[in-house]
Lab assay of single mutants.
Amino acid sequence: MDVFMKGLSKAKEGVVAAAEKTKQGVAEAAGKTKEGVLYVGSKTKEGVVHGVATVAEKTKEQVTNVGGAVVTGVTAVAQKTVEGAGSIAAATGFVKKDQLGKNEEGAPQEGILEDMPVDPDNEAYEMPSEEGYQDYEPEA
C-alpha cells in the first residue's frame, strides 16, 4: 500500500510541476504579447503594419512553449490582441483601416495563427491545408 501511495504522490508532483510550467509559459506569452502591443503603439504610420505582424510573430513563438489545451486559448487571445492593436492603430490615425491585415508588401496577414497546427491532446499534428499553395516548377 505504501508503494501505491508513494507512486500516487510522485504522479501528483509531476502534474503540479507540469501545471506550473504551463502557467509560466502562458505568463511569458502574455508578456511578449504586451511587449508587441507597446511596440505597435510606438510606431509611426509606416511601421504600424509591420508592428502588428511582430506582435503576432512574438506571440506565436511563445505559444510553442505552452502545451496542451492552453495553446488553443493563448492563440485565440493573441489573435484578438493583434486585431485590437490594429483597431487602436486605425482609431489613433497611425494607419488607414484599409491597410490593416496586410503586410508591407500588401499581402493579407489573416491566418497567421489560424494555420498553425495545434492539437490540445498532444496526440497528432496535421499540416495546414494546401489550398493556398501553388506547385513550383523550376525553369529549365
Rank of each mutant, 00 (worst) to 15 (best):
P108D: 09
P138I: 01
L113P: 02
A17R: 15
D2Q: 15
K32R: 07
G41Y: 09
V16R: 08
G93L: 04
A17F: 10
E137H: 04
A76D: 07
D115T: 11
G47C: 11
E137Q: 10
E20R: 03
S129E: 13
G51C: 14
D119C: 07
A69M: 14
A91I: 11
E35Q: 09
E137S: 07
K80R: 10
K43E: 00
Q134T: 11
A69L: 01
K45L: 15
V82E: 05
E28S: 06
T44Q: 00
E105V: 12
E28P: 01
G47E: 02
A90V: 12
K45R: 12
V55M: 14
P108T: 15
G25F: 13
N65Q: 05
G73Q: 13
K80H: 09
T22P: 04
A107D: 12
K80G: 07
Q134S: 10
V48L: 08
A69C: 03
E139Q: 08
V3K: 03
T92M: 10
A30F: 05
G51L: 08
V16N: 09
T81W: 11
T75H: 02
G86H: 14
K58C: 01
Y125T: 13
E28T: 09
G106P: 08
E131G: 02
V71W: 12
V118C: 11
E20G: 04
P120K: 08
E105C: 10
V77Y: 15
H50A: 03
E131A: 01
P120C: 05
P120N: 04
E13V: 07
A124P: 13
T54I: 15
E110H: 04
A78V: 06
M5T: 02
D2G: 01
P138G: 12
A91S: 05
D115K: 11
K43Y: 15
D2R: 05
V95D: 10
E35K: 06
V63I: 10
P138V: 14
K43V: 15
K12N: 01
G93H: 04
A56C: 12
A124I: 03
Q79H: 02
A91H: 10
E46S: 06
V26N: 00
V52P: 01
A11Y: 15
G68R: 15
Q99D: 11
N103F: 12
V49C: 09
V95H: 12
Y39H: 06
V15K: 00
S9G: 04
G51R: 06
G36R: 15
M5P: 00
G41P: 00
A140I: 06
S129I: 03
G93K: 04
V77W: 15
M1L: 02
K6C: 06
E57F: 10
V48Q: 00
P108H: 05
V95G: 04
E105G: 09
K34W: 02
Q24C: 11
T59N: 04
V3F: 14
G67V: 11
K10A: 12
T33L: 10
T81C: 15
E13R: 02
Q79K: 08
Y133M: 15
P117W: 03
E61H: 08
V66S: 01
D98M: 10
G101T: 06
V15Q: 00
E57G: 09
A18H: 04
E126T: 07
M5Y: 01
V55L: 10
G67K: 11
K10M: 02
A30D: 00
V63S: 02
T33V: 13
E110T: 09
T44E: 00
V77K: 04
N103G: 12
E104S: 05
G7A: 05
P128R: 12
I88M: 09
E83W: 04
E137Y: 02
Q79E: 07
A17D: 04
D2L: 08
